[in-house]
């Protein structure tokens, strides 16, 4: 299921939700977020990894994320991101919005296909 070419705009619109959702489980650094999304999507979710960082910074600016540099076991320093209280609320809200939105879109599509 690797490399399904999703529309860039669709990806752009959903990247914040994915970040918030993944970080609601535990703190992660950028590369880890990518690895986790690829793993969960069974390699279907592919996007230019560099664009993750502006999205992380945008969410950080909005006060949804906190960040700190941590040194890993191999001695490498990585910037970990985690959700703030506002970020947790935003994650819940975004998830609800997403489910409502996809429900409506699915309803329209299933009607159109029947």
């Amino acid at each position: 299921m690797r490399g399904v070419p999703f529309d860039r705009e669709l990806l752009k619109g959903s990247i914040a939700l994915l970040i918030l959702k993944l970080l609601s489980e535990r703190d992660m650094y950028g590369y880890e977020i990518i690895q986790e999304s690829v793993r969960r999507s069974q390699d279907a979710f592919e996007f230019k990894e560099g664009t993750l960082y502006p999205a992380l910074h945008q969410l950080h600016k909005r006060g949804y994320l906190h960040s700190e540099w941590r040194t890993g076991e191999n001695g490498k320093q990585r910037k970990y991101y985690g959700l703030t209280v506002a970020g947790r609320k935003a994650a819940r809200r975004s998830e609800q919005e997403w489910f409502s939105f996809t429900k409506v879109v699915n309803a329209i599509l299933s009607k159109a296909n029947s």
Partner: peptide, 17 residues
């Protein structure tokens, strides 16, 4: 290929800040 074009990433950063 995986990281993307630096220009694209830079433009996204520029818009954030």
């Amino acid at each position: 290929m995986r990281f993307g074009e630096p220009e694209e990433v830079a433009a996204a950063f520029a818009s954030v800040y």
